[in-house]
Design a protein around this nucleic acid. Structure first.
Length: 237
DNA sequence: GCGACAG
DNA sequence: ATCTTGTCGC
């Protein structure tokens, strides 16, 4: 029972060893749609109250977005925050939480970058590859890359995020009029186009997708009674 | 050397 | 991310 790792590796690595591991694992990332019907989506997040890691994973039905499961685990922090190495700090406790789910999600939404990363292996790709699940990276700000042009102010505006060499590594999406855009990128087993479409169906009246807001809230110790503002959006696949 | 830098 | 009070707006 639960979603468990398909690939495993040590986590007590030095920064240089972690970077080398990312360079090797990045080769496993699939940036094309590789999934069937999506009926279950899982969102996750980690909070750090008093220097400890509190990881939360929420399972939702799709496209109804009804909250089906909530798992929370608290562990000691084993790695410092280093830009580019975020996954070595947040993934361990998240894997513990994912393993406790009763049902298997068909798609994962991670708070952070996927391939929009210096080595094309942000936390969304890391989790996606380890669990071998379609995964979307949905971050609140840019870590790597530059927008192709200025982004429109209206909700729904989009612009590519590219490397200095011109490689498209993500998409900026204005999820609400006037607010700072979301940074969407491929985590694993999904195309950037599909990732963006999914995120758009997950956004309601707030800047952050509802499923991520619920997971974020849960990791910070709040309770979500059981009803996330459910609504009806058309299935994409 | 300097600036940038997910959460 | 976390530390923190009040405050403006729908």
């Amino acid at each position: 029972m639960g979603l468990k790792p398909v690939f495993t590796h040590r986590w007590d690595l030095s920064p240089s060893e972690a970077i080398h591991l990312q360079q090797q694992m990045a080769r496993r990332v699939v940036q094309q749609d590789q999934f069937g019907e999506i009926n279950r989506i899982a969102a996750c997040d980690v909070a750090f109250p008093q220097n400890r890691a509190c990881a939360a994973v929420c399972l939702f039905s799709y496209p109804q977005l009804k909250l089906l499961e909530q798992k929370v685990v608290v562990e000691e922090v084993r790695f410092p925050y280093v830009p580019g190495l975020l996954s070595f700090r947040e993934t361990p406790p998240l894997l513990t939480a994912f393993a406790q789910l009763k049902e298997e999600p068909d798609l994962l939404v991670v708070d952070g970058q996927g391939v929009a990363h210096p080595r094309r292996f942000g936390i969304a790709s890391h989790i996606g590859v380890i669990l071998e699940k379609p995964t979307i990276g949905c971050a609140k700000s840019i870590l790597f890359g530059k927008p192709t042009s200025e982004l429109g102010q209206k909700k729904g505006s989009k612009v590519n995020l590219v490397t200095e060499e011109g490689e498209v590594i993500g998409m900026l999406l204005r999820s609400k009029d006037g607010v700072e855009p979301l940074v969407i990128s491929v985590g694993h087993r999904i195309s950037l186009e599909s990732a963006v479409k999914f995120v758009e169906t997950l956004c309601g009246r707030y800047r952050i997708p509802d499923v991520q807001r619920i997971a974020d809230s849960l990791s910070k110790g709040n309770i979500t009674a059981g009803l996330s503002s459910r609504r009806d959006s058309k299935p994409l696949f």
